[in-house]
Design a protein around this nucleic acid. Structure first.
Lengths: 231, 231
DNA sequence: CGCTCTCTTGAGCCCGCTCAACGACAGTGG
DNA sequence: CCACTGTCGTTGAGCGGGCTCAAGAGAGCG
């Protein structure tokens, strides 16, 4: 592992004045080259990666599958902050404990990085530090975009935004295979499951989308129409 | 400025194995000792620090006053992501442009840090890098907490949470001097100005709070009662 | 085939929004 | 000094989008 660290450090030393946050993603993410430093772990659908309040010894990167990151209120109301798709990093904390719960939406593989070990690695390897920083800032930007949705968009706009976002992030063509069920979508968008279902049905009637495979597959038939709705 | 940089780097080199994100705030924030590297700037109430889409050449730290960070939808609907109070850092981006607008809620003084200059500073000075990282992660945690509020809390709970948060962040005792007007509170909590006003009035009737100074000063007379409401 | 889990659809209600008026100040100018 | 004006906060009346409660429809699986 030391060898890997030095190698990547040498690479970054040669990169010409790598500006912090200047480029969003480097050609080959360092976090991948350093991957051996992390532990590969698998989780079955529905399994919990960690819970709110647990010690935050690790942070994670999704290899395959989907993770939902959520918070609960005392009476069980739930807010899903984000769905983490392959390539995305989550679980970094400023304190000692996790501030939210992470669960596998479907069968999922992640790489777990020990937090303490990465402190020194970050210091020795500026380029790696930049990437981690960039990743956290992107999470923040996504959170900010989502706050607009939660606070100011109508049900129709929320669904439209969600579908376009999912389409962009995991589609092959204009077909989207949703990994999560309606309850998850509802808790992500600040709606009820019934409103999600009704809104999707209405979009089918309006010719914006088509539903298949028990509602899990969505074909976007009028992308422009959806975009006009997304606020 | 070069002298200052080296000085702070030397200090951090002596700090014993400062673990990344291990402690939330160091005794003397480095960003303050390096403050000379930033430019002090003043903004009048209502003035814009930067707008969505502008080049993100600087990031900022609040010295005094209050900044609102917000996003607009095409039809004018607004979501205030956060109110930045003295000591807080904002305006860091992963891309080249600002993704949101920042405006002074009241007369405000900030320190503006040139982004490019801090890339090298971060690399030379791990402790500074840690602090910046910690600050961004804390913004993310706050955003996540706020998403629960926006997506899953009732008007009453939103107001209760807001008042307790403001009280914690800027109160002397149980009296809170709100720097922002009702429109800002509404756009922060995903409500209308009328609902904010009505809910506050109801809380006065319920003996939870007292209002003074044209509604800008709030005395929390039953903190437990408010806490029971905050979800 | 029956059981369970998920999604859909319907009927009715309520919380928060819309529209509108009024009140409380502060600043300004005659 | 007071009338005029603009900004901000409060209050009322009524509406409607999304929620609640309830039942039905598919799909997967033993």
């Amino acid at each position: 592992m030391v060898a890997i660290t030095t190698a990547t450090a040498r690479v970054s030393a040669h990169s010409p004045s790598a500006g912090l946050l200047a480029q969003r993603v480097l050609a080959t993410p360092l976090v991948d080259r350093i991957q051996p430093a992390g532990t590969r772990r698998s989780f079955a659908k529905g399994e919990e990666l960690f819970a709110e309040g647990e010690a935050a010894d690790f942070f994670y990167k999704v290899v395959s599958g989907t993770v939902r990151v959520c918070k609960l209120l005392s009476d069980g109301r739930r807010q899903i902050e984000a769905f983490q798709l392959p390539g995305e990093i989550f679980g970094l904390e400023s304190g000692m404990e996790h501030r939210f719960t992470a669960e596998a939406v479907e069968d999922t593989v992640v790489v777990a990085f020990r937090r303490g070990r990465f402190a020194s690695l970050m210091h020795e390897n500026p380029a790696f530090s930049d990437q981690l920083m960039s990743s956290v800032i992107q999470s923040l930007e996504r959170a900010q975009e989502h706050m607009v949705l939660l606070g100011r968009k109508t049900a129709q706009e929320k669904i439209a935004t969600f579908l376009l976002d999912m389409s962009r992030r995991l589609s092959r063509g204009d077909q989207v295979e949703l990994p999560m069920q309606r309850t998850d979508i509802a808790d992500h968008l600040g709606l009820t499951i019934e409103t999600v279902s009704r809104t999707l049905s209405q979009m089918v009637r309006d010719g914006l989308i088509k539903l298949a495979a028990a509602g899990r597959t969505i074909v976007i038939s009028n992308k422009g129409g959806l975009q006009a709705l997304n606020g």
